[in-house]
């Protein structure tokens, strides 16, 4: 029971990170109908920027933790968002409306490019960061010796995810930008005829997705304390799985899918085998797509004859 609770907490934390990345996938897929393969790399870039900011702040003597964290989030979000914007502008916009495989190939090309760009500029070796936020709240201290604990960093991750999700949902449902975005999702040509700047809306989608991925990257860095140039691929595929599981195009779905994938992975590792945890996640992806292609919260698609 204690073990179960601890795994649950760990699973929710991991799921929050996946959920934040998944939002980027789901929004981009919703608006332009392509898998932004490079989104996992955006997440990786976010974590590298967060690390560099942390070290730079330490070098100039700023060590007050809340301020450090705040600056890390802000700078990482801004710089990563710039990457998101640039990728869209360079690799996807020229191909908008072109044939469907082309942006997928440029996305894969971008993904390869970004991985190797970081590898070349920052080195191929893993970057360890000692845990910065230690301690936590002990929820249960059983006589069997298993302690159920929720660490401060886990609390921060979960809280931050909740806050970002809430803010984001408001943004999409209440603001003019959100309305434009939903309009583009429904019918891009019509939205454009009605005076919506489609290019700008799509760019902003990428920017927002990248911002959230940057937060996820920073939290990944703080939570696991190890990053390398390759973390984006696996995290990206799993986050995409989460987006699909939740129903692609749906924001709550992305979060829900993220939690589901996080929990599945944690419990699988906790009770079965760590080696096959990726197999579990990928199998879920395949099973969901085959038997429930519209996901948990997505709209079912009817075949038109």
């Amino acid at each position: 029971m204690e073990y179960f609770l601890q795994q649950l907490i760990n699973g929710v934390t991991l799921g929050s990170i996946y959920g934040l990345i998944a939002i980027g996938y789901t929004m981009v897929y919703g608006i332009i109908g392509m898998i932004n393969f490079a989104h996992g790399e955006i997440f990786m870039i976010g974590s590298f920027i967060a690390l560099a900011v942390f070290l730079a702040l330490a070098a100039i003597g700023i060590t007050f933790l809340p301020l450090v964290l705040l600056l890390m989030v802000v700078v990482a979000m801004i710089c990563t968002a710039a990457w998101g914007w640039t990728i869209e502008r360079v690799a996807y916009r020229p191909l908008r409306g072109s044939f469907r495989l082309a942006p997928l190939i440029t996305a894969i090309g971008m993904s390869i490019f970004l991985q190797n760009f970081v590898q070349v500029t920052q080195g191929a070796r893993v970057k360890p960061l000692p845990p910065q936020i230690q301690g936590g709240i002990t929820l249960m201290d059983s006589p069997s010796g298993i302690v159920v604990q929720i660490s401060w960093i886990q609390i921060i991750i979960i809280l931050m995810t909740v806050v970002l999700m809430a803010g984001f949902s408001l943004l999409i449902s209440k603001t003019s930008l959100g309305r434009q975005q939903r309009a583009c999702e429904q019918d891009r040509k019509m939205a454009s005829l009605l005076g919506v700047n489609v290019d700008r809306t799509i760019s902003l989608t990428f920017v927002m997705g990248a911002g959230l991925a940057a937060v996820a990257g920073m939290m990944f860095l703080l939570y696991y304390g190890v990053i390398d140039f390759y973390i984006g691929f696996i995290a990206g595929v799993k986050a995409f799985t989460a987006a699909v599981l939740g129903g692609i195009g749906s924001l709550p779905g992305a979060m829900l899918g993220g939690l589901a994938i996080g929990l599945i992975e944690t419990f699988w590792s906790g009770y079965f085998s760590v080696e096959y945890k990726d197999v579990a996640a990928f199998s879920i992806l395949a099973i969901v797509l085959i038997f429930m292609p519209s996901g948990l919260l997505g709209r079912p698609e009817v075949e038109k004859v």
Partner: peptide
């Protein structure tokens, strides 16, 4: 720089 250029070439040729 092999794969770096490979990735970039994929993007450029496709565009």
């Amino acid at each position: 720089y092999r794969m770096l250029i490979f990735g970039l070439a994929m993007v450029l040729i496709m565009v």
